[in-house]
């Protein structure tokens, strides 16, 4: 809701600016993410979350306080925190006997939970356990999705979109070729395990323009077991995926290119009125006074009719 549409007007200029910055915009920046801990998270769950936080870093906040809540039963706390922190993504760690080393990842739309998935971190090797050079913080990673399951399973399809949303950082116009140095690979096996691996790209000489790619694992390496999911209804998802008019490419009408690449344009011309066409002026064709009078009356009547027609419409 716009600032103008609020019943209570903001009292200060700064307050007004804050409210305006929170208003929906046609072009949004990168989604912010919050990470928090739910009921007594295990050491491993906490480390997994911390590593995911490290992957997301400039656009993320890690809230270190523990919160006594279960996101799948009551999501109000997340919605509240997401509103407070202006975040659209969240990650939560927790641990229980029934669901050990639990990680919940999700996203919100209009401050309400859109998608939320629960993953169990079965095998985990932290970033710090790989003793090698890491990538720069904030580098846009290449995302790989391996396995036919990502395409065949409807739930996994949505989860793929969630992972892309989580890790793609932001839409960019151009990229430095040497800046391509991070790969995140998600492999879905048939038994519902998602293998997350993270590599650094090494560009080697290949004798051609395109370099030969070699990878070096930098961590984290996590084997996720998919547990519960709460995915948005298709209608809501469609609503959330709406593209604003400003971003849709404008098509110029009536312009085409032929096989040779030359530009063709189609021009529409209104109907030509032959009766009013100026021809050669001659005395014999001149209108008499009577004819002129008649024409004037006709025109007046036509104008009157048009006016009354407009009034009725």
């Amino acid at each position: 809701m716009g600032v103008i549409q609020r019943i209570k007007k903001p009292t200060t200029r700064k307050g007004k600016k804050v409210l305006q910055s929170k208003e929906p915009k046609p072009i949004e920046g990168p989604k912010q993410c919050i990470f928090l801990q739910a009921r007594n998270p295990s050491e491993r769950a906490r480390k997994v979350l911390k590593d995911i936080y490290n992957l997301k870093k400039p656009d993320a906040a890690y809230l270190s306080r523990k919160n006594d809540f279960v996101p799948f039963e009551d999501a109000t706390l997340i919605e509240k925190l997401c509103y407070k922190k202006e975040a659209a993504l969240f990650g939560i760690s927790s641990h229980s006997k029934k669901r050990p080393h639990n990680i919940v990842l999700g996203r919100t739309f209009d401050y309400g939970v859109l998608d939320m998935i629960e993953l169990g971190a079965d095998n985990f090797k932290a970033m710090s356990e790989f003793h090698n050079m890491k990538v720069l913080a904030g580098v846009k990673p290449c995302l790989l999705f391996n396995g036919p399951a990502w395409d065949l399973n409807q739930d996994l399809k949505r989860i793929k979109s969630l992972f892309v949303d989580f890790f793609h950082r932001e839409k960019i116009e151009s990229i430095r070729l040497q800046g391509l140095e991070h790969v995140l690979s998600f492999t879905a096996s048939d038994d519902g395990i998602i293998y997350l691996r993270s590599y650094r790209i090494l560009l080697k000489k290949s004798g051609q323009r395109t370099p030969r790619v070699e990878l070096e694992e930098i961590g984290p390496s996590i084997d996720f077991k998919l547990r519960r999911t709460r995915l948005a209804a298709d209608e809501l998802f469609k609503e959330a995926c709406k593209v604003p008019k400003e971003l849709k490419p404008l098509t110029k009408k009536n312009i085409s290119r032929d096989a040779f690449g030359s530009k063709l344009g189609r021009v529409h011309i209104g109907k030509q009125d032959i009766k009013r066409l100026q021809t050669r002026k001659m005395k014999g064709l001149k209108k008499t006074a009577e004819e002129k009078k008649e024409m004037l009356l006709k025109r007046k009547k036509a104008r009157k009719d048009a006016k009354s027609f407009q009034a009725t419409v």
């Binding site: 859109l114 949303d165 839409k171 990229i175 430095r176 959330a240």
Partner: peptide, 20 residues
């Protein structure tokens, strides 16, 4: 720096807030 211009992304991701 050698830079490439990327084409428009084809995957549509949900927005954080509704279209104004």
């Amino acid at each position: 720096a050698i830079v490439v211009r990327l084409p428009h992304p084809t995957t549509i991701l949900p927005r954080a807030k509704p279209v104004p």
